[in-house]
Design a protein around this nucleic acid. Structure first.
Length: 286
DNA sequence: GAAATTTGACCATT
DNA sequence: AATGGTCAAATTTC
């Protein structure tokens, strides 16, 4: 909803932008180191909560770097530098080489012109990320399509509450390459309206705890067992004997282990409010 | 049994 | 006509 005057912002010089990207990448690497250190925490509760937080930090950093790279792609596209665009789109050439590069560029351009049923321009946001599943929303897959000149199929998700709350948010996820970890192009279409509905009215049929009532949970732990991008990383790191970026604990478990878990800022505020309310009454029920 | 995913068919757009 | 996006029945998983 909030229309940021992004288009009015002049791009930083590319040197500076590259430096920022570099710093963000370093931050992500450091977060990874930190994660390894956190593995050593003996207490399961603290460890898993800390791991989850580090994972979020890492995701935020990688996403930010990707966004900057996307911007670079836009600017360099307009100034005729397809090489940079291909780089920004994650086309590292590892995917089989059957014209994936061209596909990535063409697709990116096309996504900018996506339209709704009435021909109106839809709000589109494209992000390159290694963790397409880790955006805190509940998505439901409704299709998958092999895309021309693309090595990997594109997956189509809609908000898990698109029915209940008429939330128009959709998300297209397409793996860009086969690197380790793989990079995914995530195209977000429309904003979530469901998230603004949750604080107002609890879902009547939901179980009584607030974490499930608010749907912005990382429930990709139970996502598709075969091809959903969300599980890719889990499976892979499991194979490698590593511990997991997004641990396979449920949101509730994490929430009970620690008070610092996977809440969106909005949820976090609510939780805090709830807690202060309860501490006001502190044991004085009715 | 319910819920989520898969997958081929169908539809709209270019 | 080709391609991308969505639907919906079948299948799978919990």
């Amino acid at each position: 909803m909030a229309m940021r005057p992004k288009s009015e912002m002049s791009p930083p010089p590319s040197d500076q932008r590259d430096a920022v990207i570099e710093e963000l990448r370093k931050g992500a690497q450091l977060a990874d180191c930190l994660r390894q250190q956190l593995e050593l925490i003996p207490e399961l509760g603290r460890r898993s909560a800390a791991l989850a937080n580090v994972s979020n930090i890492s995701t935020a950093l990688v996403s930010s770097a990707s966004m900057l790279e996307s911007n670079r792609e836009q600017y360099s596209c307009s100034s005729s530098d397809p090489g940079a665009a291909a780089y920004a789109a994650g086309a590292s050439g590892s995917g089989g080489g059957t014209g994936a590069r061209n596909g990535a560029i063409a697709r990116t351009r096309k996504a900018k012109h996506r339209r709704g049923t009435h021909g109106e321009e839809l709000p589109i946001r494209e992000v390159l990320t290694e963790t397409p599943e880790n955006d805190g929303f509940h998505w439901r897959k409704y299709g998958e399509k092999k895309i021309l000149n693309a090595v990997f199929p594109r997956s189509y998700y809609r908000c898990g509450y698109s029915d209940e709350h008429r939330c128009p948010a959709k998300k297209l996820v397409q793996q860009q390459n086969n690197s380790d970890p793989p990079v995914f192009m995530v195209t977000m279409i429309n904003d979530h309206t469901c998230s603004s509905l949750f604080p107002a009215d609890d879902q009547p049929h939901s179980s009584s705890n607030s974490a499930t009532a608010n749907s912005q949970v990382l429930d990709f732990t139970k996502a598709s067992p075969s091809s959903a991008a969300g599980v890719w990383r889990l499976k892979k790191e499991e194979d490698a004997g590593m511990s997991v970026t997004v641990p396979s604990y449920t949101h509730d478990e994490l929430a009970s282990y620690s008070s610092l878990p996977l809440l969106s800022p909005k949820e976090w505020e609510m939780e805090m409010e709830m807690k202060s309310l309860f501490s006001h009454h502190s044991g004085g029920g009715t």
